[in-house]
């Protein structure tokens, strides 16, 4: 039984994997990993690995919307992704909800009006899962959509944030960024995704926000506010990393053209 955050954080200000409250896990990403698709990416955040393939935009069969492209999402979590081997069926309600969340996030974010009567399919494969399922999926999809060349106002970046709740009154109630699996089991957390403002001076806009745990609102600690602030800030960091990935890839392609 490993240590838990709540009982030792107060003394050490360290989380169970050695990070501080505001540190992200190591993130690495690459795009165009699968040349046979329209767009693809691989996103690694700590021990969470997500691969994304995009098909489209292409003619949507039976697609009724004459003004926009429709975003469809398929998420498969590999049976070996977590500690205990578990096969998730197609009808898994959590996975279905995940798919809907991702679809609607990109439906609103992408310039879908440029592709009327067509569809874009995002297919996500979670190869290894150590927390931040939704956030990693959103990030991977974002990168893959960039690779597919679907126009968008900015890169959608997502991250999880949680809060260390203390009942003894001594441990500080610190918000923490980017929880791993054991932290997600222990602490209340939310997933937040943002897009950057239109100009440099505008603030980022929250486009996805999901919280499934219980937390007290409006206490003197302002836990929820702190979590959100840390999350939005974390999204910025993630976006910088993702932008870097896109730029490196772009540079390489341009160099190849010459």
């Amino acid at each position: 039984m490993p240590l838990d955050t709540a009982s030792t954080y107060g003394q050490t200000l360290l989380r169970t994997d050695g990070r501080r409250w505001n540190e992200l896990r190591r993130i690495s990403a690459s795009i165009s990993t699968q040349p046979s698709t329209d767009g693809s990416s691989q996103f690694v955040m700590g021990n969470t690995v997500v691969v994304c393939n995009i098909v489209g935009p292409r003619e949507g069969r039976g697609q009724r919307d004459t003004n926009n492209a429709l975003i469809e999402t398929e998420v498969t979590v590999a049976p070996f992704a977590q500690t205990d081997r578990r096969r998730r069926t197609k009808g898994d309600k959590r996975v279905q909800e995940l798919q809907t969340t991702i679809s609607s996030a990109f439906q609103a974010h992408l310039f879908t009006h440029l592709y009327p009567r067509s569809s874009i399919t995002i297919s996500l494969h979670v190869l290894s899962l150590d927390g931040a399922l939704l956030a990693s999926c959103l990030n991977a999809a974002s990168l893959a959509l960039v690779d597919a060349g679907v126009p968008m106002p900015s890169i959608l970046a997502a991250v999880t944030s949680g809060v260390i709740t203390s009942t003894d009154g001594i441990t500080p109630s610190d918000p923490i960024l980017d929880l791993n699996n054991s932290e997600e089991l222990e602490l209340p957390f939310l997933s937040v995704g943002t897009v950057s403002g239109l100009s440099e001076h505008q603030e980022d806009k929250v486009s996805v926000l999901i919280m499934e745990s219980r937390i007290q609102i409006g206490q003197n600690g302002k836990k929820l506010e702190a979590m959100l602030a840390v999350g939005v800030d974390g999204c910025k960091q993630v976006r910088t990393i993702m932008g870097e990935v896109v730029r490196t890839h772009g540079t390489r392609i341009l160099r190849g053209r010459k």
Binding site: M1, D4, A6, S7, I164, T165, S166, T167, D168, T171, E184, L185, E186, L187, P188, S213, R214, I215
Partner: peptide, 10 residues
């Protein structure tokens, strides 16, 4: 009992 503050579902 384990941790002092487990608001999670553990």
């Amino acid at each position: 009992t384990g941790s002092f503050a487990s608001q999670g579902r553990k």
